[in-house]
Write a protein that binds this DNA or RNA. Structure first.
Lengths: 125, 125
DNA sequence: GGTTTGCTACGAAATTATTCGTAGATGTCC
DNA sequence: GGACATCTACGAATAATTTCGTAGCAAACC
């Protein structure tokens, strides 16, 4: 699946807040932007149809939850993005990001550590 | 500007091949997927209107060229992508990409070099 | 010079995403 | 029980993207 931007917003709410009602999601989204309640509802209904959300209907106000993990979703998005924006060159993307965005010392260290792991586990290249 | 996927395909042809006619672009795109000549034409006309392409009309078959560089376009795309898919965390994106895609020894070394530069030029974090 | 070929411009259909209004059902509160 | 609030479902308007057909013009070709 390739969630749209709006769908990603909703997924983020559910990933961080856990299973929620439409009202809760709508309230969270309203913090950052303007959208109607039924808009959120419709989006979540569609996402449910698509299999992006699960739905618990025992209460009158249904409870929705993400049916996909943040990890796997990001994996898909990254694949697609590397392909369309960087013609498959992941390292170019990494270079671009590192050059362009501030990262904390700690984050940089983590990245280095990961790089070292990759290096040592794959001496063939 | 935020080029669409189709627009990116055309930009890539122009970035790699240099200024080209619609026919040349159409031929290049036809290698990888199926699309009509007038579709390519229309897309390029729209991109010209948007200012993504320049157009040289001295010949009957106009010559188009990218009006934006690959570098700056990718910068914009990355910004947007970090925001929507990783809620602003560039380092998370980097980690995800590194974990997920193969890179050559040489690429990894380049990335490390860049990391060291960042580290040493910013001792404050 | 008439036919064929190749090009642009234009309109419009098809698709997808986003948005919201309204209707109908159900629950809540005096 | 009646008024009000809250929820779902649904239809539909709007917008953006992608697609292609057709028309009109200019060039090239016997």
């Amino acid at each position: 699946m390739k969630p749209t931007d709006s769908e990603l917003e909703i997924l983020h709410v559910l990933w961080t807040s856990g299973p929620s009602t439409v009202r809760q999601v709508h309230e969270a989204l309203s913090q950052s932007r303007d959208l109607g309640y039924t808009t959120a509802l419709k989006l979540m209904q569609i996402m449910h149809e698509k299999g992006l959300l699960t739905r618990e209907e025992s209460n009158r106000s249904h409870t929705y939850a993400a049916a996909v993990t943040e990890e796997e979703t990001q994996r898909g998005l990254v694949d697609r993005f590397v392909e369309t924006a960087f013609r498959g060159s992941a390292s170019k993307l990494v270079m671009q990001v590192l050059g362009q965005h501030k990262a904390s010392r700690q984050e940089l260290d983590e990245i280095k550590k990961l790089l070292n792991q990759i290096n040592s586990s794959d001496e063939s290249n």
